[in-house]
Design a protein around this nucleic acid. Structure first.
Lengths: 335, 335
DNA sequence: CTGAAAGCGCTAACAA
DNA sequence: TTGTTAGCGCTTTCAG
């Protein structure tokens, strides 16, 4: 491979001049400049970003550690992050945590080793108090912002509101007269799961539903998990008349289960879900959901991260993004 | 930041010993080894992957250049690629081409500058003969494999079959008695668009449909585009009785348009689409589609790329991945 | 079993 | 306006 020195030799100048021509970091005589450009052209020289980054102590790179699969919004999330980041001259390095603490530690380590300038992380289940991964990040002094889930850690965090939206969803079902309502819950241990489940329980409690009649089934945040959970619910001697699915993927699984059982939504079972779908307006049943504002979350997260990279020492943000209800007909309300 | 030399000093050994301890690249006395590990622990040392990569001349990094938004399978694609890559010790660097030649050149350049060990590219519209971007890649001697769309260029390529599947889709509608059928086409210029459109035209021609009665409307590969295209079709004095949407996102747009017009699928208009949805089995209308085997495409692509990185000089692969039909009820067939 | 030292390719102070 | 040179932090050959 041609290096900068090769180019310099050919152009009859020093390496530093080539560097400055390339980066526009100091005035260069128009003639020499031209010779350098010519030498670059003729050799097909391409600068080595690694060497550059090593010397400059920054990589213009943002690490994104997230569970690809279990994030229903992965596409728009990445899209938004990429858009904002690349507009600021940053590239995204992606690593999948699989929502598993062990993998998470691994991937975050990889990202940190690669000297990302900043890190966006959707933290995997926090096993209670301290968070080793975040401690590692802190030790590396790499700016970090958490998305999708809050953690008890001093750093910027952007995540959806969970409790209230789910409480609303469940209340809606209650208002429609349902008394036997089930919640299909996500990956155990995630703060989102905990909060959403709490919202459901709270609604049921407020309605005076007997504790023993409150159905909570684990759907592990996946379509298959949701499917299995709904199957279990249908096997009960007194199955629920309404269901609230606590995330996107599980909602699809629940629908599959219901369809296979020959049950119609909302006629036989009412269904509402956390997380919206772009197509939800056009297919029957038209799902009543709580839609998250992913773009806003992602945009804010990246912007804050970029500020931190610039050295901002503003107090840490911890912002709840409020979902909004998409009231359609799967809950049993008329169109 | 602590460097390797700091660790070496503390452990009372040379830098090279620390390096070897870290990488297990040569036998080290158990005692010195321990001292080194201890020094690492005590300092919280983290190795600088940049310096390492620079010295080793490889980054263990794969570049993924793709249009995030316009790829309906982005999620599973990335998921699969990440899975295979990370199993082989590679990290993914993501760059969005936006399916725009200019942006594509930019992003590929970034990736190449960053010294990715290999590149996976979903090429943007080829403006005819030569492909500058691919020439650049070749000049850099970076192994590359193309996905999603074929190009007239000597490198490994994995893309879906387009012509035959669409021909089949259209034929099916023809067999059901439709004579006025429209195709909603994707981004102009993409090979996929061209081939799919050709498949549609071929089916119509074979059925002896008059050329002037063959409806082809541009949907630009987006939901909005599909929506608008369908709106236009509905505005015709003699609107189509059946539609084949040539990609995922557009299918949703078409459904939106139809719903807004108060039309039912398949009763008022039959609809079939290229690209499947995970939820298509559970919502009405249940879409009849051609499902791509993304995982297989992605897996093969990454594996081949890894081989190239290892130095394989096998003849270039150019593999068509055959989609398979998901026959459901949106075409008008009974369940 | 271990260390010295020469790179890897670039940036940026300093000097001219 | 340009060149010299000392790093950036690591790997790896060659000696010992």
């Amino acid at each position: 491979m041609t290096t900068m020195d090769d180019v310099a030799r050919i152009a009859g100048v020093s390496g530093s001049t080539v560097s400055h021509v390339l980066n526009g970091t100091r005035a260069v005589n128009e003639r020499t400049r031209f010779r350098v450009l010519e030498a670059i052209e003729s050799t097909g020289y391409r600068r080595n970003g690694l060497a550059r980054s090593l010397a400059m102590q920054r990589t213009q790179t943002l690490g994104l550690a997230i569970s690809v699969l279990s994030n229903p919004y992965f596409g728009s999330l990445v899209n938004t992050i990429e858009k904002v980041a690349s507009a600021a001259g940053y590239t995204i390095v992606l690593a999948d945590t699989h929502d598993d603490p062990e993998r998470e530690e691994q991937t975050v380590n990889t990202l940190l080793d690669r000297q990302v300038d900043g890190l966006i992380l959707a933290p995997a289940s926090s096993s209670g108090g301290s968070n080793e991964v975040l401690d590692m990040v802190r030790a590396s002094r790499t700016p970090v912002v958490l998305i999708d889930r809050f953690q008890d850690f001093p750093c910027d965090q952007y995540a959806p509101e969970n409790f209230e939206p789910v409480r609303l969803l469940a209340s809606h079902l209650l208002e429609l007269g349902h008394r036997r309502i089930a919640a299909i819950t996500g990956t155990r241990g995630l703060s989102t799961t905990i909060e959403r489940t709490a919202g459901f329980i709270a609604a049921m409690a407020a309605a005076g539903i007997d504790r023993s009649a409150v159905l909570v089934e684990e759907g592990r945040s996946t379509a298959d998990g949701g499917h299995a959970a709904m199957d279990r619910l249908l096997g009960l001697e007194s199955p629920p008349t309404a269901v609230v699915s606590l995330n996107n993927a599980m909602t699809i699984g629940v629908m599959k289960s219901l369809r296979q059982a020959g049950l119609k939504v909302p006629k036989d079972v009412a269904l509402v879900g956390f997380d919206d779908f772009e197509w939800a307006d056009s297919f029957e049943p038209r799902l009543t959901t709580m839609a998250q504002d992913i773009e806003s979350m992602a945009t804010q997260a990246v912007q804050m991260l970029l500020q931190r990279i610039q050295g901002s020492d503003a107090p840490f943000a911890r912002e709840s993004i409020a979902p909004f209800m998409r009231h359609r007909n799967s809950c049993g309300c008329p169109d």
